[in-house]
Design a protein around this nucleic acid. Structure first.
Lengths: 151, 151
DNA sequence: GGAAATTAGTTAGCATAGCTAACTATATTG
DNA sequence: CAATATAGTTAGCTATGCTAACTAATTTCC
């Protein structure tokens, strides 16, 4: 079966590329994971914190949805973040069942430091590549984000 | 600050690209994670199994290195795979401390099915992209694997 | 040749993170 | 106002990560 150019891709190729992207994502995350522990905060906590820092305050349910986990899982993640003083919670006035979760100043600082640590060794390697490849990777990251949103 | 083409990249750009790649990898994996459970095998087991299927038999230490986890972690992952009849182990003759781990036929079949499920919705989306973008993503996946190995 | 060191893997024990089921408390609906 | 729905928590299971400490086999070296 031959690719019809500019139109669509044969099944086998699409599967193979999806597979490689999947594999590459796993391995890339394993590499950055090695530095996760330095912040004293697990990856799920760091990721949830980043939503609060970059997207602003959220309810527990919203945060669970954003992180694609179930409410009980997020409940425990948030408990860890509060224990560490990285997140603050208030019961909302309009609906006293709901929580308003917000990053503290300490949480925001920790996130920036952790985020930088997590990517800095990758950045180090990127600096040794030619500019063209880095630009290609930048574009690829954008395309992957679109893929993740199903676009 | 402008990049000097073909030479190296300013610090800020490298960090930004590393950050986007990291983020894109997280989101891509979250998307495929939803179907992980259908095989009845966890993601770490599936990933280890894929090494045995695609790269051939390995010792436990080699498998741990390939998966970037510690030997005790891999020991338990392999125990799960054996319990499920997906992997076979033999003690090697040359060195009786070492194990030769190999996927069984059942393991190979399960991997192909799981792998296809895991990536099929990604592939579906890829099929709607022009061939050029798919090719760009394929190349990007290769570069990301190199990055993960620190090359 | 045999004691010491090294290497391969396992076991024990801890923490994080994922899930479902079942619960409490509040809000909404009929 | 009773029944239902919604937001979050608690309890308890599994899987995965780690380090420390162990066993067994091999290699080193006197």
């Amino acid at each position: 079966m031959e690719p019809e150019k500019g139109k669509d891709i044969p099944e086998a190729d699409a599967l193979a590329v999806a597979d490689r992207l999947h594999s590459a994502a796993i391995h890339l995350l394993r590499r950055v994971r090695t530095r996760d522990t330095e912040s004293g905060v697990g990856p799920a906590q760091l990721s949830a914190l980043s939503v609060l820092v970059f997207a602003g305050p959220r309810s527990l349910g919203e945060l669970a949805a954003a992180e694609q986990v179930r409410p009980p899982t997020m409940s425990r993640i948030v408990a860890g973040l509060m224990r560490a003083g990285l997140v603050r919670r208030q019961v909302t006035k309009e609906d006293r069942r709901r929580l308003r979760l917000e990053a503290t100043a300490k949480g925001t600082e920790l996130l920036w430091a952790a985020r930088k640590r997590r990517v800095e060794s990758l950045a180090e390697t990127l600096r040794q590549l030619p500019a063209e490849q880095v630009e290609q990777l930048r574009q690829a990251a954008e395309m992957m984000e679109q893929l993740s949103r199903g676009e």
